[in-house]
Design a protein around this nucleic acid. Sequence first.
DNA 1: TTGTACGCGTTATCAT
DNA 2: ATGATAACGCGTACAA
Lengths: 352, 352
Amino acid sequence: MNKITINDIARIAKCSKATVSLAIRNSPKVKQETKDRILKVVKKYNFYPNYIASKLASGKTGVIAVVASRFSNTFLSPLLTAIENYIFNKEKKIGEYKLQLYSTFNKIEIKNEILREILYSKVADAVVVITIKPEQDIISEYKKLKRPLILVENKDPNAHSITIDNEYGVECALDYLYNNNRKNIVFIVGSLTSAIDEEVSGIPEERLNAYKNWCKNKNITVDNKKIYYCRSYWINEAREVADKIIKENKYVDAIFCAAGDIFANGIMQRLIEKGIKIPDDIAIIGYDNHFIGEAVTPQLSTVDQKLEEVGVQAYLLAVDAINEKIKSYKSIIIKPELIKRQSSSIKSQQQF
Amino acid sequence: MNKITINDIARIAKCSKATVSLAIRNSPKVKQETKDRILKVVKKYNFYPNYIASKLASGKTGVIAVVASRFSNTFLSPLLTAIENYIFNKEKKIGEYKLQLYSTFNKIEIKNEILREILYSKVADAVVVITIKPEQDIISEYKKLKRPLILVENKDPNAHSITIDNEYGVECALDYLYNNNRKNIVFIVGSLTSAIDEEVSGIPEERLNAYKNWCKNKNITVDNKKIYYCRSYWINEAREVADKIIKENKYVDAIFCAAGDIFANGIMQRLIEKGIKIPDDIAIIGYDNHFIGEAVTPQLSTVDQKLEEVGVQAYLLAVDAINEKIKSYKSIIIKPELIKRQSSSIKSQQQF
DNA sequence: TTGTACGCGTTATCAT
DNA sequence: ATGATAACGCGTACAA
């Protein structure tokens, strides 16, 4: 049987359970000799403190909740990997906090339910919310109860946040195309709307605005015919959009697909099928630095969002906030980086 | 303040906390009138039972642990998505169990540590272990303590398991190539060894044996020069292997890459760069049905492992085992399916 | 070092 | 049939 409790250990080691508790956690309050004796018994009887009981007593859960719109959310996997690597390199052990995963299924109702349950039932010490934004009420409730809430790709004055500078990312890509003599740029972005009761991400809008601002600064009239929206982020839709683009924009010489590399690649494959040369006829830049960009021919230029950095910062923010090392709400902004590959290589002036 | 406990609710609703507890969980032991009164108070004071206290009292944790070699493990994300969809469609709510994610960092030591902690500290009600195999000792310990252990892509008489019929998957692909007149088939598989103290997956070996058996059945001599191993599963290595293949196997007319679609695609891209026509000169089939296979040109044939099914079965097995609905250890075998796409389309006899 | 109150529900037993 | 009482579950942390 494995009903060994701290009381048993205390009895066998002839000390109080308080001492056992301290010895297990290697407290300096217990002298080495006693510690050794206790730990020998602990080892012999294979005693592990009951996780739940321990957490009830300490008032902490040892859990960081990670809430995403879907498990397939583009950000989720890279962020988890970033945290995983950080823990392995820095903490060198199982990891101080357990990661609990939640999907809202893209439903606002479920998002609210999950966030409230985590808060009030005291399920997690901190919550990292990825690409979706909790409602104001809920943010306030987290604030009131001093439960750390870390928003990734959203901002709020009453929560910590890590955001990516989308404006900068969009500018870098457009500047690069423009400076390499691409003057007829088509812009693709995620849809700004969604099905009823489904969550809308704010990211497409940010990128679209960045595009419009860039045009303004360059004295380029914003032409809605050069803006395309993507709903599914999926390949078949990309092929259709590609067809539309070449039909409706005869002179297009560059496509910046801020809807991600998978969509960008779909566009690219379709254009190649149609006999269009990439990058000679049309340059393409995607977004995300998804590995697919390196795996296709020609290799796809892209905007790297530095999710490795985002993940580590989110984790650190959560941990520091739990340990009350942070006084006020922190807002960290990560600068993305343009990755130049074959799909957008230089078009020389001489061609004209 | 949110220090509302079940005692407060009991006091306010003028009943005992036992009744509150029952009312919250909609027990038939409490009459409707009392229930209504209590639930009104619960609602008014926004009371949520303390998760930890609740679990300490009930002796269950409400957690299913998912242990993978790395968060980037090919199986992990599809399995999580499968579970997510199942919960959304069937349970229609937050999900009865919380999913806790663990990475062993591919280290055997860490794997052992994690599995022991989960078991003895009573962190989870059931554990799903993905593509790695717990040591015999640990499997026995789980058995002794009656903690459900579900192995994915591993088998053991003392644990539940979901495996994919690798032999069948390999046969399907090879048969298809062979029957379409590809007689000079190169086989690529994951490395059978790994760095010291790193975990070795048993999958490559299974697939390699399946290949050898297939050769035997077809009266084909196994030619080690036609077998290539992949270490990194990554694109650069794939390109190198592609170069080696065409140098060392002049007459190769098909490649079956059982090391996954990403690697297969790397091979394919390199061959295309070299001017080789796919599938006319060389047919290619990958493994995994990774979305990249649909996103490249030509689209990649592949073996779909039905991970959607695997994920659902693993979850159901965990839940049923927790609820003691299963008497003996179950072993579920999933049949993969060959997905025929452009990269391996038919080579007619007439060409010769 | 230790005694012990405490955290907060759950559930078996008892009472009406 | 309902509801109350009280005994758990098992560590943690503070006062002594």
